[in-house]
């Protein structure tokens, strides 16, 4: 019996993008030998997400009439499914066909692995995500190598204090045991918060670099405006409690 990986995907209005995102997830799970399940959280789309989408694998639909924060919505989705692994996946991430196999392999190779991210690029093949590092003072967390040509960014660096929640794989029992995402964040950095707690209480955080998935980033309107209050809350919780990278 195959292990189950459940994608938890927040969506707001971009049904066509969601369909392709789910399609690519299904394909990547199949190549990894994992049974794919999907929970779509319709986060107050103006036109509600339909119960099925052409070309997309079947999904369980959660509908919110009011827009909820990333953490609240993801926690709700995680409670709706009982797969072995959860994959928090943004609707604007198109997975590399071998991304999930590589991430699953990280868990097989490292018994103490708490969460795994994956290398992602923008459409121009500059780095969107290759791990999260922390700067001194008010700099705080940021994406390492962001906007650098992917061909120039080494694939050897894997261990980080945090990875992005745009594509984050974790065992479901570990996620629920950690208390899930902190719902006090408006929208953003709750993923880094989770990773810091996991790193402190559970085990390692790794960003797999073997594949490159595509991430358009911040496609959803209103997303960017919520960053400053989230960052401010994050710093109030964590400043001085993470290691400064380099």
């Amino acid at each position: 019996m195959s292990e189950i990986v459940s994608a938890i995907v927040l969506s707001r209005d971009f049904d066509a993008l969601l369909a392709i995102c789910l399609q690519r997830f299904g394909e990547s799970a199949r190549r990894a030998g994992l049974a794919a399940r999907c929970v779509v959280i319709d986060n107050a789309s103006q036109t509600p997400c339909p119960e099925t989408l052409p070309g997309a694998p079947p999904y369980r639909l959660v509908r919110f009439d009011r827009h909820h924060g990333f953490g609240t919505a993801c926690n709700h989705g995680a409670r709706r499914d009982d797969g072995d692994f959860l994959l928090f996946l943004n609707n604007d991430v198109l997975l590399d066909p071998d991304a999930l196999a590589a991430m699953r392999e990280e868990f097989a190779a490292r018994p103490t692995l708490a969460a795994c991210g994956t290398r992602m690029v923008f459409p121009d093949r500059t780095i969107q995500h290759a791990g999260v590092v922390f700067g001194a003072g008010d700099v705080g967390p940021y994406h390492i190598h962001r906007k650098r040509p992917a061909s120039l960014v080494p694939r050897s660096e894997r261990r980080f204090q945090a990875v992005t929640g745009a594509c984050l794989m974790i065992r479901r029992d570990v996620f629920l045991g950690s208390g899930g995402f902190d719902e006090r964040y408006p929208f953003g950095l709750e993923d880094v918060d989770l990773c810091l707690r996991l790193g402190r209480d559970v085990g390692e955080i790794v960003c797999n670099q073997e594949t490159e998935s595509l991430h358009f980033e911040s496609m959803t309107p209103g997303r960017v405006e919520l960053d400053p209050p989230s960052r401010s809350f994050f710093m109030s919780q964590w400043k001085g409690r993470y290691a400064i990278d380099g």
Partner: peptide, 8 residues
């Protein structure tokens, strides 16, 4: 109703 109706 939606999944967040109770709260609303």
């Amino acid at each position: 109703l939606a999944d967040d109706a109770a709260e609303l």
